[in-house]
């Protein structure tokens, strides 16, 4: 029972699609930034704002929206930096195989101290 549970959990952890999908910035779906509400501050409160004040408010609001939009666009543009492993891939394969071979040799060395 215990062995089965451990094998099941090991399989879940090691073979889980989560380990592939869960890396930050992964590819499925369009990245949709969390939108921050654009808060437009009210202009000086006066009973009857002048035309100039109203224009200023409108301009201010438009500017804020533009800045926020630009920021969100920038977030969407953040691209993944791609690695070119072609030149070093074989080195890592060789080191990996070598380490694996060392592991197997150690594993199957006779345990001299065993009673």
């Amino acid at each position: 029972m215990a062995k089965k549970l451990i094998i099941l959990l090991a399989s879940v952890v090691l073979l889980s699609p989560v380990s592939v999908l869960a890396h930050a910035g992964h590819e499925h779906g369009e990245a949709k930034p969390k939108l921050k509400k654009v808060v437009v501050e009210s202009a000086e409160t006066s009973p009857a704002p002048s035309q100039a004040q109203a224009d200023l408010m409108r301009e201010n609001s438009q500017l804020r929206e533009d800045v926020e939009q630009e920021r969100l666009n920038a977030a969407k543009r953040v691209a993944e930096i791609v690695t070119d492993m072609s030149s070093t891939r074989s080195s890592y394969i060789i080191i990996g195989l070598l380490l694996g071979a060392i592991g197997l040799v150690i594993r199957y060395l006779p345990g001299k101290e065993e009673k």
């Binding site: 890396h23 930050a24 990245a31 921050k36 969100l72 969407k76 993944e80």
Partner: peptide, 13 residues
């Protein structure tokens, strides 16, 4: 993965 330089104030990863 390594993404580009961060854009502050937004969260999407």
């Amino acid at each position: 993965p390594l993404l580009g330089a961060p854009v502050e104030g937004v969260e999407w990863t």
